[in-house]
Structure formats: C-alpha cells, structure tokens
Simulated scan of single mutants.
Amino acid sequence: MNYTKTYLTKAKHIISVVEKQEAAIKAVAELFAQSILNKRVVHLFGSGHSRMMVEEMWPRYGSFPGFNPIVELSLSFHNLVVGANGQRQAMFIENVSGLAPKILRNFDITEDDTALIISSSGCNVVPIEMAEEFRKRNVKVVALVSSLHLEGSDSKRKDGKKLTDFADYVLDTGAPLGDAMIEIEGLETPVSPGSTLGGVLLINALKAEIAAILQQNGKPPKVLASGKIVGEQRAAELFEMAYDEHAHNLARLFENVGKKK
C-alpha cells in the first residue's frame, strides 16, 4: 500500500471540492473586501487547531491588514498537551457556554464588520456562540467547516444548533467525517487529517480575491513581502506600514468600547 500516494489522491479530491466553491469564495471575498474598504475589519475566530486558519489569513508573508485575529490561548494552546494549560482543559473550555460574549465585549463591533468563524465540526459551543453573537450585532458571518464532518456530528449545544445555523455563507474544506483520511492495514483508527489542507486552500483563495478587489478599488493592500521579491528595504517598509495599519484598525475597535450608543 502506497500511503503517500493515497493521501495525495485524497488531497486532489479536496482541491476539487474547493474548486467547485469558486462562486461562493468570490461572494465572500466581496463581503470581506467591503469591510476593509469601509475602514473596518473582518473578525477571524477559530478554537483548537482551527487557530491555524486564523494565522494563515493574517499576519504572515503574502497577507495584509484588514483582519482582527481573535485567538484565545485557553482554547488553542496545544503544545504542552498535559498538565497546566493542557489539551483536556482546552477541549473542555471550548464547550463552555457564555465565553463568546465575554470575548466580544472587548471590541466595538459595527454592522460594517464581517466575521469568519472556523470550526471543522461546527458543533462546539464557543465557535457557535461567537457566530450567534456576531449575528446579534447585525454582522454577516461566514462559516468555514468540514461539511461531511458537521453533518455526521451532534452539536454540543443543548438546542442542537450548529455553526452553520448562524452563518450567512458556508465554505467547505472537503474533509471526510472524522477528518483523518488514511486507513493503515491492521490499525484501528485512520490517520492524516484533511481539514487543514482544505482550510488553507480556502483562506488563500479568499486572500487573493480580496487583494484583487482592494487593488481594483484603488486601495492596494500593504502586503507582508519577502525581501527576495521586493528588496530588503521595501520589505521592511511594507512590514512597518502593514503593522501600523493593523494598529489603526485595532484602535477603531477599541475606541468606543463601553460607551453607550
């Protein structure tokens, strides 16, 4: 059995699933770009390993400001695994009702904002309540999920609602139920997940479409770029300008926190 070939074959299927969502990707990109053009932000949230998709969007090489990455360490700090700050606690906290509004209490959110909530299963409480809280604030929500895994899983919420119940748009990673894609002969459980691959494809397709819209509207994004491409001096300038713009975006998010509207 050629396990590498099998994984790559399944990865091609994931690419085909993402490819079929081109219209939805472009619609979401228009939505997100409009927030950035309005000098507001796209809020990004992911708990558990979904945190990786948040960081894939911003900040990293080939990315640009316009996003508010919301990453709670208590929900996504995995490297210790056990002991203090261990994985058991993170998985427990991920299903504690009431945490989402506490997180969003930190920000002045407006209807010009948009939100991307990433959750492979779409069934854990905190990501669902984050989407629900954004909806209460009249913010458009995009859910990035693994549709087969979501459909085959039970919500941890008492009312049975899932992330997609609070989403205006849904993007599908194409990963299978259970995420892991490779069956090893004699091994009880499959290995090698696919949701990260599909998620990264979706994030970077969105990023490209958003950048194009910003450019077409005369607002070229300040992209974090390698000095090997633009020269070391220009790369340093872009980094500083991008970080400054992000700081200004955050300042707007904090400016009216706690003030009565």
Rank of each mutant, 00 (worst) to 15 (best):
V170P: 01
E30L: 08
S97G: 13
F134A: 05
A84W: 04
V28H: 05
G199V: 10
K12N: 09
E132K: 15
E183T: 11
R88Y: 10
A208V: 13
E185Y: 03
E232G: 05
A180K: 15
L214T: 01
V71S: 06
S146M: 04
N124K: 11
A211S: 09
I70N: 05
T164Y: 03
K12R: 07
L44G: 02
V18L: 06
S47G: 15
A235I: 04
L73G: 13
P69W: 00
K222G: 01
S76K: 07
K261F: 07
E237C: 08
E72A: 14
L197Q: 03
H246A: 09
F64C: 08
L202S: 04
R135V: 07
P127M: 14
S195L: 05
K10R: 13
T6K: 15
A29E: 01
V42I: 06
K162R: 12
N256D: 08
G122F: 07
V42S: 01
N106G: 12
R234D: 09
T114V: 13
V223T: 11
K207C: 15
A212R: 14
S50H: 02
V200R: 02
I182C: 04
L250C: 01
T110A: 10
E22S: 13
K158P: 02
N95G: 05
N38P: 02
S74E: 14
S226H: 12
R252E: 00
S97A: 11
G48R: 07
L75F: 01
S121V: 06
L177S: 12
F107I: 00
I70H: 03
L171H: 03
W58G: 00
H13E: 10
V257C: 05
T6S: 14
A208S: 15
G86D: 08
E240R: 15
A115H: 10
K140Q: 11
A131W: 09
G86P: 06
